[in-house]
Computed example of a mutant assay.
Amino acid sequence: MTTGNSLRVEGLAFAYGDREILRGIELNVAEGEFVALLGPSGSGKSTLLRLLAGLERPGRGRITAAGKPVAGPGPDRAVVFQHYALFPWMTVADNVAEAVAKAHPGLGRAERRQRAWEHLDRVGLGDAAPRHPFELSGGMQQRAAIARALALESPFLLMDEPFGALDPINRAKLQDLLIEVWQRGRPRRTVVFVTHDVDEALLLADRVVVMGASPGRIIAEHVVPFARPRKRAALFGETAFHELRERIAEALDADTLAGLEVV
Rank of each mutant, 00 (worst) to 15 (best):
Lys68Trp: 04
Gly11Gln: 15
Glu31Leu: 01
Glu161Val: 01
Met1Gln: 14
Asp76Met: 08
Glu118Arg: 11
His242Asp: 10
Gln142Thr: 03
Leu166Pro: 03
Leu27Asp: 05
Leu244Cys: 11
Thr3Ala: 12
Pro130Asp: 10
Leu49Asp: 06
Ala151Asn: 09
Gly216Asp: 11
Asp76Asn: 11
Thr239Ile: 13
His222Val: 04
Pro88Tyr: 13
Ala251Asp: 15
Ile169Gln: 14
Thr3Asp: 11
Gly17His: 06
Ala53Pro: 01
Glu243Gln: 14
Thr195Arg: 03
Gln183Lys: 13
Val96Pro: 01
Asp253Val: 13
Pro75Ala: 14
Leu136His: 08
Asp76Lys: 05
Arg112Trp: 00
Phe193Tyr: 15
Leu37Val: 03
Ala233Asp: 15
Ala201Gly: 03
Gln175Ser: 09
Pro69Lys: 12
Arg112Thr: 03
Ile25Pro: 09
Leu7Tyr: 00
Lys231His: 15
Lys102Met: 14
Ala129Arg: 09
Ala110Gln: 14
Gly185Leu: 11
Val192Pro: 07
Gly61Met: 13
Trp117Met: 13
Ile21His: 10
Thr190Leu: 04
Arg50Pro: 01
Arg232Trp: 09
Gly259Lys: 07
Met211Glu: 01
Gly42Cys: 07
Glu118Leu: 08
Gly164Pro: 01
Asp160Asn: 07
Gly42Tyr: 09
Leu150Asp: 05
Glu200Trp: 09
Arg247Met: 05
Trp89Ala: 06
Gln175Glu: 14
Gly54Tyr: 05
Val70Cys: 04
Arg171Gly: 01
Arg115Ile: 03
Val70His: 06
Glu261Pro: 00
Ala85Asp: 02
Ala251Gln: 15
Val96Trp: 01
Arg60Tyr: 03
Arg188His: 10
Ala220Gly: 12
Ala147Asp: 11
Ala213Gln: 13
Thr3Ser: 14
Leu7Met: 06
Ala15Met: 02
